[in-house]
Design a binder for these strands. Structure first.
Length: 445
RNA sequence: GUGGCUAUAGCUCAGUUGGUUAGAGCAUCGGAUUGUGAUUCCGAGGGUCGGGGGUUCGAGUCCCCUUAGCCACCCCA
């Protein structure tokens, strides 16, 4: 019989332990930060009725959507983000849950698009959203969560760029470009990437804007200075537009709030050219870039939307949220060499060294585990050198070596695998001293 | 979905204008008076040269198709 070739689909991946360990760690960090602000976890099905997912119905999402007919003849699709499922969820359950409703949702999504570095067909999103309030406090909090999240992950050099869609809308309104806003903003969003000349060309080509209109929009890119200075320079550009003026006002409040919470000013930057591809944003917009690796793109993006669930309910549900791009972030961390090459999830290794003493090794391991420290006992009584080689290659922190000599003396040899140093620790008075010593070497998270 | 580049052992790569049994380093496994790895020495295993078809006396090497990866566009996390 011929063998089936083991392989994975384009854009889909297996996660080996050394990839999965940092992945789980990142997820745990996100959960911790979200919970610290009172966000609660939810989950929704991977499959939805096709009409739920295509409700917004742009060609782009349609092209990327995995869809099929189930065995009951229903047209179904796999979720391509967590926002659309949230909209459906909110329409269905918010009457029970009440508002404000703060949830986080960490789950895989699928998009049948072409792959690239850090971009896959199955990837994980870590969304958090606050639904049912228009308060600027929620805007501020969203920025703070993004900030705390990146800091908790271990980044110190990153920039959260913000803007307010109302400013853009106000400007476009003044210029008579409101009905072409999607195309205009999509072009504007590329400013940093392709430069103002090309943006102007594209804007005129795709939206039919005149050269004058394009140049007015591009005045946005001339703004410079501190956040406050940029906002001041912005005022004449939107003067007369109530929407635009309100946008500036709200952005000032957001900046003040984030500042009041003690965030380093250098990490917050007003950038009026960011528009985000998606057109459902109506207020503040966030994008987050790593200063050391800006080319990987935004690793945490989000913004405010007025009417999340308008397709599913007549109840108006405003909200704000953002999404951490876990896979893109992991790709960045790998490139920046921030990931420890650890293939074990337990820090302590016990070689099975004396064939007759398996019970003693297991007893020792049990005591250390009872103290909340992970321990792996090697399954075969192989040569010590081989076992230590294994321990080293997996990235264990310490090995507890005990043979006939140690057992006779009621001690164990604690070997620090990073430094190579060993010390004898007495077990005559129990394992407390040993556990304390392990704790002093191992970082447990 | 469009265009460009790439594909040789688990990994990183050699492989001369197509010419005999396809190599190296690292990794893996085993051994070096049977208690110490990352940093010794010796040895072994492991490759239908991504897959399919064609040109040729002969293809890892040339041509076509296909799959996957990378890059750009599109879009986005």
């Amino acid at each position: 019989m011929s063998l089936i070739q083991p392989r994975t689909l384009k854009g889909f991946r297996d996660y080996l332990p050394e990839a999965m360990i940092p992945r789980e760690k990142l997820i745990a960090t996100a959960q911790r930060v979200y919970r610290s602000y009172g966000f609660s976890p939810i989950d929704t099905p991977a499959l939805e009725y096709l009409e739920i997912l295509t409700g917004k119905g742009s060609d782009e999402t349609d092209r990327q959507l995995y869809k099929f007919q189930d065995h009951g003849g229903r047209n179904v699709g796999m979720r391509f983000d967590l926002t659309v499922p949230l909209a459906r969820f909110a329409a269905q359950h918010v009457p029970k849950l009440g508002t404000p409703f703060k949830r986080y949702h960490i789950a895989s999504v699928w998009r049948g698009e072409n792959t690239q570095r850090g971009r896959y067909r199955e990837f994980m999103q870590c969304d958090f959203d606050t639904i049912g309030t228009k308060s600027v406090a929620a805007d501020i909090e969203t920025g703070l969560v993004i900030h705390d999240l990146l800091q908790a992950i271990g980044f110190s050099k990153f920039t959260i760029r913000l803007n307010n869609r109302m400013i853009l809308n106000g400007l476009l309104d003044k210029l008579g470009l409101t009905d072409k806003s999607t195309e205009v903003l999509r072009s504007l969003d590329k400013l940093a990437k392709i430069g103002r000349e090309k943006v102007a060309e594209e804007m005129m080509a795709t939206s039919g804007a005149t050269a004058e209109q394009a140049s007015e929009v591009l005045k946005l890119s001339d703004l410079s200075g501190s956040n406050a200075e940029i906002l001041t320079q912005l005022e004449p550009l939107v003067a007369g537009s109530a929407t635009g003026e309100e946008g500036i006002g709200r952005l000032r409040e957001v900046l003040a709030g984030i500042d009041a919470a003690g965030v380093n000013k250098d990490r917050i930057q007003v950038d009026v050219s960011i528009a985000r591809g998606l057109d459902y944003y109506t207020g503040v917009i966030f994008e987050t870039f790593l200063d050391d690796l800006p080319t990987i793109g935004s690793i945490c993006s989000g913004g405010r939307y007025d009417n999340l669930a308008g397709l599913f309910t007549k109840q108006e549900l405003p909200g704000i949220g953002a999404s951490l791009g876990l896979d893109r972030l992991l790709a960045a961390m790998e490139e920046l060499e921030m990931l420890a090459k650890v293939r074990t999830s337990a820090p302590v290794f016990i070689p099975y060294f004396d064939r007759e003493r398996l019970g003693d090794y297991l007893a020792l391991a049990a005591q250390i585990r009872a103290a909340g420290i992970g321990v792996e006992v090697f399954p075969d009584p192989k040569k010590l050198g081989q076992q230590l080689k294994y321990a080293d290659s997996r990235g264990f922190s310490v090995a507890l070596i005990a043979g006939g000599n140690e057992f006779a003396a009621q001690t164990t040899q604690l070997k620090n695998l990073q430094t190579g140093e060993s010390e004898e620790i007495s077990l005559a008075e129990g394992s407390d001293a040993l556990i304390a010593r392990i704790r002093s070497i191992v970082t447990i998270d």
